[in-house]
Amino acid sequence: MSTPAEQPLSNSPAGPDVPLAIARAPRRPALPLDPEFVDSALTNPLRAIDLTLAEADRVGASVVAGVALSRIAFILLVTSLLFAIPYGCVLSLAGWWKVVALTLGSTVICLPSLFVFSSYLGQRMRLEQILVLGFTIPAVAALFSFGFAPIVAFLRATMSEGDTQVPWRSISNVLLALSVLAGVVQLWRTWLAARNAAPSNLFAMVLLVWHAVFLHVLWRMGTVLHLGG
């Protein structure tokens, strides 16, 4: 059975009731974010979540156009800080800061290298552009960890701490890894919309190699923070 999107708009057996929104239209380039929307995201957490998770194309367009970049970077930074705290509290109340340190800390440590290497190779990206791209990872990871926090709290409450082959901390590490992976995917979604900001594809290569450095630092940070248990 064919889906509405596969049916031609004319002679549709479903008749004129099929919503036109379902038909796939050619994709238009995304517009930069409205500065008023960005301003409202500074005070409205739901809009900050939307900006971080749902507007990769438009954030990318903003990176190209240079619209409200420092404010977007600030929102991503605050999102990275605040939304990672609940998961940290679930791991241990005294170590509430550890997830923030893991994701945001690793990013902050690695961002200078991304900026310097891309500049050195002639990719004239502004610091704000690099910050927006870089903070996408910890911000998205923080939001996913926020969503996973009740799950980890439930697992912690129902699983024994003792001798077991699959402790709750292992599941927690998998969920944290998934959160960071979601951040990396979002960074590339944003970059695909922002690739005109760099003069050549060399920046994508720099970004790819930078991921290796970032993931190594992230792994080390996780070990140092004893997040593995």
Partner: peptide, 20 residues
């Protein structure tokens, strides 16, 4: 009920990324 309640936030966060 427990599964739905525990996952509610995660369902929504995942949905924000794919279906805003």
């Amino acid at each position: 009920v427990i599964t739905g309640v525990v996952c509610a936030l995660a369902y929504w966060i995942v949905a924000r990324a794919f279906a805003p």
